[in-house]
Design a protein around this nucleic acid. Structure first.
Lengths: 222, 222
DNA sequence: ACCTGAACACCGTTCAAGT
DNA sequence: ACCTGAACACCGTTCAAGT
C-alpha cells in the first residue's frame, strides 16, 4: 500500500480529492450506517466526486477496507502502560487490542485479514511476542504462540459480533432456541442439561478468562 | 428454520422444486465456483426456475447459507472413535470439527454464525462439553471453556483461509512483506528479529498445539 | 495527472399477476 | 399453493474521452 507521499511537483491536473479525504469520508459513512452502507458510489457522492475518481486513489474496494482498518487501528489503539511482568504484559496487550477491535462492529468484515499490519498495531504484536520470549519461549515458538492468541482474539470478536448482529435482526436467534428446546436428552445429555442457561452463559464476556487459560497453556510447554 | 415436513395433502399447485433440490444445487455451485458464485439468480436458472420461486422455499439468501452449512456438517462430520480419556476426547472432537470445516474454504462467510447448530455438529459439542465436565469443570465453566475452544477454532479457520485466499490473489501479500522489510529495528526488535521467518512460521499448521495449550490452560483452573 | 459519463454485467428482493 | 415477469433500487468496475 504505497503512500501517496509528498506533494507532487510533476505536471498535470491538480488533485481535487485526496486519499485522506476518501478515508475520512469512508470512516464517517461506516460509523453512521455500518459497513454495509459503504459503497464506492455513495462514497463518491459524499466526497463530491464520481465513482471512478476514487479508483485513482485506491486500487479497489478491498484496499479501501484495509486502509480503513489501519486508520482505525492508528486512531484507536492508544498504547497503555504495560506491566513489567511478561505474562501480565501479554494479557494486557492482547486485551487492549481485543477491546479496541470489539468496540468496532464493522471490523469483522476486514478482520479476517491475515494480520494487523498498521504500525501502531504492530507495537502490540511486539509486546506480546517479547513477553512470550521473556517467559522462556524460543522466538519461533513465540510467533506460533502469538498466532494462537490472535486466532482466539479474532475468533471471539467475529463470532460474538455476528451473534449480536443476528440477535438484533430478531427471530434469527429463535432457531437456536428451538434447536436447544428440542434436544434429544438421551443422545445429548450435557447440552440438554445446560440448554436453559446457554444463552446467558454465552452472552457473558469470557475473553479475559479464555485468554489467560490459553497463555498459561502456551507457557506450560516450556 | 421450519422443515417443509411431510408431503402436503392441502390443495393447490404441486411444487416443481423442493428445498432439497435447491440446497443440492446450491452445494454444487459453491463446490464448483466458490461461495461468490452463488447468487439467487444463478441458482434459479440452474434449478430450472426463476429467482422468485426460490423465495417460496427459503426466506432469503442468508437462510440459504445457513441451510448449506448445516447440510455440509451433516454430510461431512462423520463421528470418529473417541478415546476414553476425557482430555484426549476433547482434543479429538475439536480437531475433527476443525479439520472438516477447514477443508471447506467457502465456509468462512457462514462460519461467523453464532454456533454450529446442525444436529450432527451438536454431537461434537456434546463430546467436548462432556469431556470438560469429566475433567472436573462445573457445567457452566464447561460451556465457557467450550466457547473458548470454538472461538479459537473459528478464528484459526477464518484467519488462515482468508490469508490463503489473499495469497492466491497475489500481490496483496506483498504488502505484509513490505511492512516487515521496513520494520523499525529499534522500536520493534522482536518482530524485526523474526521478520524473515514470519511467512513460513505462520504458514505452519499449529492448530493442534494451540488447542492443546488452550485446553490445558482451561483445565488448570480446576 | 486527474477526473467525468456512459456503459457493462451484474445483484437481492418486492409486487402484481397468472395457473 | 406455487410460480412467473417485470420492475425497483441498487452494486463494482472498465473504457474512452475530456481538461
Amino acid at each position: 500500500m504505497p503512500q501517496p507521499s509528498a506533494p507532487r511537483k510533476t505536471l498535470g491536473r491538480p488533485p481535487r480529492i485526496s486519499r485522506e479525504e476518501i478515508i475520512e469520508t469512508a470512516r464517517r459513512i461506516v460509523d453512521e450506517g455500518g459497513v454495509g452502507k459503504l459503497t464506492m458510489r455513495r462514497l463518491a457522492t459524499e466526497v463530491g466526486s464520481t465513482p471512478m475518481a476514487l479508483y485513482h486513489h485506491v486500487r479497489d474496494k478491498e484496499e479501501l477496507l484495509v486502509l480503513l482498518l489501519d486508520d482505525y487501528a492508528d486512531r484507536n489503539l492508544r498504547r497503555p502502560e504495560l506491566p513489567a511482568d511478561p505474562r501480565e504484559r501479554i494479557l494486557v496487550a492482547a486485551t487492549a487490542v481485543h477491546d479496541a477491535l470489539a468496540a468496532c462492529p464493522w471490523i469483522v468484515e476486514v478482520l479476517t485479514a491475515d494480520d494487523l499490519m498498521s504500525t501502531n498495531a504492530l507495537w502490540f504484536v511486539e509486546q506480546i511476542v517479547d513477553g512470550l520470549i521473556e517467559c522462556g519461549l524460543s522466538p519461533d515458538r513465540a510467533v506460533h504462540a502469538y498466532r494462537a492468541v490472535w486466532y482466539y482474539t479474532a475468533g471471539e470478536i467475529v463470532v460474538r459480533t455476528t451473534a449480536a448482529r443476528r440477535r438484533a435482526d430478531d427471530e434469527r436467534a429463535t432457531y437456536r432456541e428451538q434447536v436447544f428446546a428440542d434436544l434429544d436428552t438421551r443422545e445429548l445429555p450435557r447440552l440438554a442439561q445446560v440448554a436453559g442457561r446457554w444463552a446467558p452463559l454465552t452472552a457473558e464476556d469470557t475473553y479475559p478468562n479464555g485468554l489467560r487459560a490459553l497463555v498459561d497453556g502456551l507457557l506450560l510447554s516450556r
